[in-house]
Structures are given as structure tokens and as C-alpha cells.
Design a binder for these strands. Sequence first.
RNA 1: GGGGCUGUAGCUCAGUGGUUAGAGCAUCUGCCUUUUAAGCAGAGGGUCGCUGGUUCGAUCCCAGCCAGCCUCACCA
Length: 512
Amino acid sequence: MSEHEEYLSQGESFEQEQNELTKRRLEELEELKKGNINPYTYSFEVSNYSSEILKSFKDDVPFENVAIAGRIMSLRRMGKASFCHVQDSRGRIQVYIRRDDLSEAYDQFKLMDIGDIVGVKGFVFRTKTGEVSIHAKHLELLSKSIRSLPIVKEKVDEQGNKVVYDPFADKELRYRQRYVDLVVNPEVRDVFVKRAKVVSSVRKFLDDKGYLEVETPILQPLYGGASARPFVTHHNALDIELYLRISDELYLKRLIVGGFEGVYEIGKDFRNEGMDKSHNPEFTMMELYVAYKDYDWMMSLVEELVHFVCVSVTGGSRVKVGENEIDFTPPWKRVTMLDSIREFTAEDLNGKSELELANAAKRLHVEVEPSMGAGKIIDAIFSERVEAKLIQPTFITDYPIEMSPLAKRHRSKQGLVERFELMCNGQELANAFSELNDPLDQRSRFEDQARLRARGDEEAMVIDEDFLRALEYGMPPTAGLGIGIDRLTMLLTNQESIRDVIFFPQMKPEKQ
RNA sequence: GGGGCUGUAGCUCAGUGGUUAGAGCAUCUGCCUUUUAAGCAGAGGGUCGCUGGUUCGAUCCCAGCCAGCCUCACCA
């Protein structure tokens, strides 16, 4: 049995359909080895990048001795000369290969395919038709591809628009084989480069303010800080259940108790809930806690932070998102939850009883259940009648106390807490409050949650005695903030699905 | 979980209750030393998502299942 037959017989790593194409590639691989060519080399001295060459080449100035490496993305063979495009991390450049310049290396070139990774040395020139290209003096196979890539072709039409033929567009394949998506769809790479810029600019902003980046446990004996169902796992040595964190909040506040005056964490949270275009089971959250500050102060910080990130990532203060243009120039509108409802529904819910609230909900065609308290009814009306209409960044402030067991009571408004959410493009982007630091109040709020849990609310918070103990030692007045990094990235890159800003979104397992 | 749409060649997609299921790209053979959606001539490639049913006959009709997308609900 030949080497490639043996490889193909090894079953599952090759689907049936790929066999013919792969078999051919494996034959080439053997031929290369027979010719003493290592198809998987160790290194190559790269001295140039495609985009830099294209940008800096001037026709009258000789540009010699360039060396690039990348993947062959197109191939036009014309007997004793050929053209191909080589794609590196910064773009693509055409390479001209002539038998006369390469002699026996041209025979190797005949065994190369689209998808192979090559190193090219040569000089830069402009072809008859005007494309800046590399005239190869040396061509070397660096890594052989034995699985054929989807072939996407492009043309620039008379109007100068890029036309794409046979796009690799199947969303399932794109998410499952993101490596292929990234190779073949250059705009996908751009989104993730911007995502990295979102994270680094958030970090820079907070570092420059003097806040300390910290890491707290992801595996937690108790979960808390949000209303959500957790993932459960098991630690063998201790023989205990552990939960994947649903938020960082309670640990970060312990650090404020410990004397840090500003701490933040950027990391993954995990929530065992449904998935849709704005929810992935694991997602990236930034949480910040600053001592001696309140939620009013935090609103100004959020304006400054998000504006800074927007400028860093996009170069400006305005972003096109779908049909809308969003302007992040501060200051942003600040409106209480009840006022926003009055503004969009003409219902004034201020000081209304539970029965009056239920009637208002009915008038607005918002479904309410008998079990819902005043706070939940207000929240339901807001979610259904207001939220989607908030396109420009808007702070919604002063939430009902029942929904916010970790937020401090409002200094002047009965039944409300000092909390705000930043709404933008009809979605929540940030959530913040004056943190509850009264241990007696915190304990009674936890107990309210425990009662909800006993009634079957699986998302109600569990009592965290160690957190209460920390508060009993005394926590300074503190402002806290959480920003969903994935959703911020969606906005700044104009992506409508969270799956398009996460490299490997959660998928059902692939069928065998 | 409800509703809608989709699944045909490696990729993008046509198509039909009836002989051997098509196109472009990709692949293979031949020609071609400035091409570019390269071209010209030829060739190979399919469990028509899976299972069952109706039928003389199913890729097509029906049912169930699987997977994906959209949407509603739930959920932050």
C-alpha cells in the first residue's frame, strides 16, 4: 500500500467527498519527497509584506530582493510561465513565475496548488496590465496543503466595484471551519483585528486611569453577581461541585474591601441559557469597580471610555450600524426608566400601585403575569415598548429595587436603586450601579432572592456568606460597571450576530 | 419550545414522478513565457441530508428525524 493510500484508509479524517482531490494532493506530496523536497519545512526568512510592497513600489525605482511568504490563493498556468497570488497576513500580491528564471524549481512549482504555503524571493515590477507583482527568482514550498480550499474569485467591474464569484458563504461551514473562513474572506479577519483593538483600547484607557487589572476565579464554589443559570462542573480531588462564573462582581468587590481603590477584569463569563444572535454561552465581559464613586460619576466615565474605544477602533466618533449612524460624542442623554416609558408610551407610571401598573401594561399590550411584582411589570413595559427605540447612546437610570439585589438604594427615590444601563442600537451595552455596601441590606436582599429561588426562579441569586462577611468588614462607597465586549465589538464593526465577533462560537457537535 | 425557509459535485447554484441528474469555478490530460473571474480542446467527479411510506418507478410527493439560517417565545 502506498503512503497516500494508507493515509486515506485511516478513516474519519477525510470525508468521502474530499478523497479524489486529496488523493491527488497526496500523490504530489510523494513526488516531492521522491525529489528530495521536504514539503513541511522549518523556517523562511520573511523580509517584506504584500501590502507594504504594493504601497511603496514606484515604477522607476528598482525594488530588488524582496522575500515574502504566504498561501497561494489563485493560479494561472501558461505553460512555461505562470501567475499566482500569494496571501500573507496583510494582503495579497501577484507573483510571476517563469521557467527560465527557476529551472528545476519550476518542476516543483508544477506540483504546487492553491492552498500551498510558499516562500518567494524576487524583484518587484509592474505587469503589462498594470498590476504590481513580484518576479520570482526563487520559489520554495514551505508547507503542502492536501485539502482543497473553496475557490473564491474576484473581479473589479467597470464601476470599480469588487465582484465576488462563488463566495464561501455557508454560515455553518464558516463557523465550524473558521480557519477556512479567515483564509478566504479577508473582511472576517478585519473584524477580529478590530475586536483585539477594542480589548486593547479598553485596557489602555483603564490602565492610564491607574486602575489595576486583576484575575479572579472562573471556577467558583458559589456563583453570583447576575441573574442567570450556571454551568456546573466537578472537581475530583476535592470532590465538590464547582460553577463556571456568571459574573466577576462579587470577587472584584471583595478586592475593594481589601483596599484596592480601582480594579478591573476582562474575561469570560458563562451562562447556561439560550443562544441567539446576541447571546453565546461564553462571552467576554469587562467589569470595573472604583471606590468612593457613585453611578453619576460612572456615567461620565462610560461616556469617556466608549468614546475613546470608538475613536481608537474606527478612527472617529460616529459609526454606521445597519441603517443607523450612531454618534458616541459625549455627553449622552440621561433619562430615568419611568421618564423613558412616559416619553415613548405616554403612560406616566410614577408612584402607581401594582394594580395600576398591571392595567397600564394591558393598555400597552404588554403581557404580565400575576406573579410579577411592580418592578417586573415596569421592566417588562420598558423592554417591550422602549428598549428597541433607543438608538443613540442613552443612559437609562433608576431601576426598580427588586431587579437589582446588588445595587444601592436610591438616595432620594423610594423603591428604586442607583443603577443605570447604557442602551445603544436598541440593546444593552453596559450595566452599572452605586454598589450596595450595607451588609444588613445586602443580607435581606439575598434573602429575598432565596425566597424567589424557593418559588422556582432558577435564576435568582444564591446567598454568598463569604461575600457578606467581606461587606461586614466594611466596603467603601463604590461604583461598579460591566460592559459586554462582544456587543461593543458588534456595534463598532457593524456585525449583527455575536457569532461574527467570536472566532469559535458555540455550535452543536458535528455529526459523525 | 412555536412558526417560516433551506439542505443536489470540493465551492456557488440550476433542475425533473420516467432511460445515464446539470452549469460555472475547482480537479485531471494536452497547448500556451506579462496572465488576472486567463484562454482553447478534451476527461473524470454525485448515497440529490438521513430513515421510512405512497408508487410499476422517488432526488422530486408524504411523514418522521438530523443539521443550518431567519423569526417569535424564554433569557440579559
